Structures are given as C-alpha cells and as structure tokens.
Computed example of a mutant assay.
Amino acid sequence: MRATSRAVPSDRLPEALRPHPDHIRTIAHRGDSSSAPENTIAAFDAAVAAGSDLIEIDVRITADGVPVIIHDGSALRTTGIDADVALTSSEALAAADAGSWFSPAFAGARVPTLAEVAEWGAAHPDIGWLVELKGPWTAAQLAGPVDAIRRHGLSGRTILQGFETQTVAAARDVAPDLPRALLVYGSVHFDELTGRLEELGAAGCNPTGQLPIEMPGLAVRLREAGYSVYPWTLDEPDEWGAAGVAGVDGVITNRPGRFRNWLALRWSPGAPALAS
C-alpha cells in the first residue's frame, strides 16, 4: 500500500493493470505455451481458457517490414524455415506450419501478424497484453505496431517492453501514452537501474526470475520505488512462492492454468508467505 498519494511510475499504467495489493496477475508466456504452440492463436485461446490476466507476446519484423509474433531470431525451431525472420518474407512465414513441432494436433497453426493478434485481442476485451519488442527498434519501425494496437482498441490494456534501452526509448518517443517496462537479465547496480527506468519513463521493470537470488530484495525495492514487477519465466511452485514472498505484481509463466490453481490453493491476500 502507498503511504502517500504522490505520483509513482506505475501510475503510468492503465487502471486495470496497476499494482493491486490483493492480486498477483497471471501472465501467459507466449500464450499458454505448455498447452499449445507458443505465440500462436491456439496458445492465446488456451491462455484465455486458463484464466490468464495478460498474454506476453514477442514481436519481430520480417524482410518486407511486417510485424509478426515469433520469439527466435531464426524461424527454424517453430516453423522449419532455416532462415532469419528479418530476412524472410511475411508471405513465407504465413505459409509455414508453426504447430507440428509442438504436436501433430496443431499441424497447420500459423505465425500470426501483430495486426491479426490485435484483431483477436479486440474480441477478448478482458485480456491485457505484454508486448515484447525483440532486439533494437527505431521509432519509425514502431509506427506500424503502435497503429495496430491503437486501431484495435488495445492501448488501454497494453504494456510495451524490451531488453534494449534503445527500443524502450523509441517506444517512449513514438507512443508516450503507451506504458513501458524494461526487461532485465543480469545483475545491475540498483541506483543505475532506477536511473535508467526514470530516463525511459518506464512504469515497470520485469527481471529474470534468477535475479532475486543474485540481488536479494530487488523486487521489494522496485515496488518501493513505485515500479510494477513481473518476473519471468517461473513455472514451478517453489519459484511462485518465492515471487509471492518478494511482493511481485504478476508472474510470467508457461503454465498459467497451473499457476492459477496454485494461487487459489496457496495464496491468501496479506499472507506473510506462500507455501510451495
């Protein structure tokens, strides 16, 4: 709870996505990627069925400038196309099978464009979006994705995030109304980190789940500084328990359904700890 009514960074978030002391949000990593092929419409359908609060997706740009939803720089693992996404046309990706690698039951699943996902999101108004921009982006490159988000009415429930300071800065410049979060992988001095967050006008900081071990108290200090905190990618009860004790606002997980069930059994608002 806040001691005063002063403005804090997480106030930049839409009301529906602001930290709530009695709720840890369930964030489906690449959709419900334990139940369906990651970053596909099938995975997003499964995330909704699992009761997720937000869906995390990865965005890259194809050779012809189309924003598509795919994690790896190479299309090989999920589509069988042995080429960089940045060097592959959107037409070639759209024709690829992005589901058979996961299970024959998903043969024919496709790599969706951001526009297609935004259209799907418009039909699911209760889902929030954590949109990771993979690699370095310029303000010019962000114009298309931002337009799709706004055009389909997702701007009030979307957070843009990235590892690259350049990318988050570009998001700040081209879409100051869309909240931003910085992804953090390795250890960093806390004052340096918060300085960077302040410069970027970020609302949140989303660290790898290993950082609380390397930097004890990180989540608590970030929360005290007013930032929302969504660690990633946590898939086991002991990890969920540690995150709850640390006071995070949400958990990014490949197992949203299991996490929701675990929360219902193990978590009560205001509890001093969460059992594993």
Score class of each variant (00 low, 15 high):
A3N: 00
S5C: 07
A7T: 01
E15Y: 02
L17C: 04
R18S: 04
H20F: 10
I24R: 02
D32R: 03
T40H: 03
A42S: 13
A42G: 09
F44C: 07
D64A: 03
D64T: 00
G65C: 14
V66A: 09
V66H: 05
V68A: 03
I69N: 04
I70S: 01
I70M: 12
H71T: 09
H71C: 07
D72Q: 07
S74D: 09
T78D: 02
A83G: 01
A98I: 00
W101Q: 02
A107F: 11
G108Y: 08
D126L: 13
V131W: 12
K134H: 09
W137P: 01
W137H: 08
W137R: 00
A139P: 13
P145I: 02
D147H: 14
I149H: 14
R151A: 15
H152C: 03
H152R: 01
L154D: 04
I159F: 05
I159W: 03
A170W: 02
P179D: 07
Y185K: 14
E192F: 07
T194A: 01
L197P: 02
N206G: 02
T208W: 01
P212M: 11
P216H: 07
L218A: 08
R221D: 12
G226H: 06
L234E: 10
G241S: 15
A246R: 10
G247W: 07
G247M: 10
D249G: 06
G250C: 10
G250I: 01
V251R: 00
I252P: 11
N261C: 07
L263E: 07
W267M: 07
G270H: 02
G270S: 02
A271L: 06
